[in-house]
Design a protein around this nucleic acid. Sequence first.
DNA 1: TCAGTTTATCGTAAATTTACGATGAATCCG
DNA 2: CGGATTCATCGTAAATTTACGATAAACTGA
Lengths: 108, 108
Amino acid sequence: MQRTVKQVLYSGDELEMAKFAKALGHPVRIKILKLLESQSCCFTGEMTAMIPMAQSTISQHLKALHEAGLVQGEINPPRVKYCIDRDNWEKAKERFANFFAEKAGPSP
Amino acid sequence: MQRTVKQVLYSGDELEMAKFAKALGHPVRIKILKLLESQSCCFTGEMTAMIPMAQSTISQHLKALHEAGLVQGEINPPRVKYCIDRDNWEKAKERFANFFAEKAGPSP
DNA sequence: TCAGTTTATCGTAAATTTACGATGAATCCG
DNA sequence: CGGATTCATCGTAAATTTACGATAAACTGA
């Protein structure tokens, strides 16, 4: 998509913030994370039961959350137990907190 | 894109979180917001000078941030001065803080 | 009034996202 | 060894996003 030579350079912070934010940028994924948060862990099947979407779609969203690092899956045959990835959860929490911690005063 | 009758229902919280997150889901928009945050306000021209992207693209990203409510623009002919929308900024800050404020213990 | 400046919008192309159903892989249980 | 269960992946279609250049709109100042 980049058609010119000029390239925008992003810091690691910016890229990581965007990565986390992008993963949070769909209401279903928010719902999934809230579910995982509220009951610590969850099998995929429980989610598909609670969210009226095709199982493949839920799986796709879980993959997105996993790739962003917000979620980890533990295979527990024949099921898979998903949990919040606490390390990255904390990291994301801090990133967002820092980001929103305004240094500037009110808008002039 | 929805092809079945079943509809997933989202709470206002979930939709708003997703809306804010989606707006933050691109590194350029993070960069723009950091810019606005650091110097309280900014003319569009200053951004296009600092970010090597087409002016139309920057404008497009500003529109996205505006539509998400994170940014407000004040016409100051012939320029437009953009600022963080402090009200929604606070709202987003709280939403994210609450979201990441885990109630559950560590992953089993 | 007319040229200049600044920004938004239009038109467009390529990439990505989002949804679905169908199929495949892994693992249990009988 | 099957059949059943659970989840991921594939293939696909429609929508959305992201980028660009070109153009339009709004206002200034000469």
